[in-house]
């Protein structure tokens, strides 16, 4: 029972924090660009307004277009509840392992790509094709990078990996972990659609990946897509944080431990988000045909991490 309550609290926390993380990253970027920038709660204001507006379904779109925002949101909420963010003892431990989490994330990606195709517009199809190209290269890296950690623990269960890390932090800082962290960081950038793979602030349709698929969404549907996308960034950054900086994650279902876990989780997210936003000021978007080179590089890092963890362990 307590494990289920923890899972719900986790999902609510991720859903509540995700727009604030976007607001924080925009603020960091604005500060470095010499602007004043918007408020931290601006993404929440945007969502509140969008939720009140009417959704528009294009004349050529079918059921997939209507269903995709719900699928995307549902997968995000499920991952947010199942993955070890506050506590390592989730209600679905043994089921909600790495492969399920990656599969759920991919399900959301595919739903949105199909929705992009479903609109029948040129840009929607282009965005979907690009997103699938990137997803096909990113998902193996996501799996491989965490496999490098799971060989140490002997399980693909994310909760078990984080618990082992929290119990013995010294074991986390190995060459294999460093390689896996680098691979997972690059995969996170690509999966969440951040620079240098995709520019979330672009207005030029020819350079869009994620944006091109959601160009036709309006009102409530757009709010769900934006909210779920923010949650996916939070989910991936949270995984990165808890797998490689495992301190503060509650190992017991005690309320105080969970509160500390929540506070530490938010701080970790803020630090990673701040670093990501600051880093984005210094890089330009990669040309689309150079992206596979970057992702192949991250895959090699993941492969080296697995080899290193098998050989050096």
């Amino acid at each position: 029972m307590i494990a289920w309550i923890t899972a719900v609290a986790q999902a609510v926390l991720v859903a509540a924090v995700a727009p604030l993380l976007i607001g924080f990253m925009r603020a960091v970027r604005a500060r470095l660009e010499g602007r004043a920038g918007g408020r931290l709660v601006q993404p929440w204001r945007d969502l509140r307004k969008l939720l009140r507006k009417e959704p528009i379904i294009p004349a050529d779109a079918g059921m997939i277009f209507t269903a995709a925002p719900l699928v995307l949101m549902a997968t995000s909420v499920l991952v947010a509840a199942a993955a070890p963010y506050l506590s390592t003892g989730g209600p679905l431990s043994g089921v909600a392992d790495l492969i399920v989490v990656v599969g759920l994330l991919l399900l959301g990606t595919v739903a949105l790509a199909l929705a992009g195709l479903d609109t029948g517009t040129a840009f929607g199809g282009m965005g979907a094709s690009r997103e699938m190209t990137i997803a096909a290269l990113v998902e193996p890296t996501l799996l491989l990078a965490v496999f490098a950690l799971s060989t140490r623990v002997g399980s693909t269960d994310l909760g078990a990996i984080v618990a082992a890390g929290a119990a013995d932090p010294a074991a986390v800082f190995t060459p294999a972990s460093a390689l896996a962290a680098a691979a997972l960081a690059i995969a996170t950038l690509a999966e969440a659609g951040r620079l240098p793979v995709d520019n979330p602030a672009t207005h030029l349709e020819l350079t869009m990946v994620h944006e091109a698929m959601v160009l036709e969404y309006a009102g409530r549907d757009l709010a769900l897509v934006e909210w779920a996308s923010a949650m996916r960034l939070t989910i991936l950054l949270g995984l990165l944080a808890n797998l490689f900086i495992p301190w503060g994650v509650a190992s017991s279902p005690h309320p105080a431990a969970l509160a500390v876990g929540a506070a530490v989780f938010v701080v970790k997210l803020a630090v990673l988000g701040g670093l990501l936003a600051a880093g984005e000021v210094f890089v330009a978007k990669l040309r689309l045909f150079r992206v596979p080179e970057l992702l192949a590089g991250s895959f090699v890092l993941g492969l080296l991490a697995v080899v290193a963890s098998a050989v050096l362990a």
């Binding site: 925009r26 602007r35 004043a36 945007d46 944006e211 757009l222």
Partner: peptide
């Protein structure tokens, strides 16, 4: 731009009329 910075008043340019108010 940086000098007038309409974004601090909650105003943002978007890429699609579907997203626009």
């Amino acid at each position: 731009g940086p000098t007038y910075d309409a974004e601090r008043h909650g105003v943002r340019l978007v890429a699609s009329p579907r997203h626009a108010d």
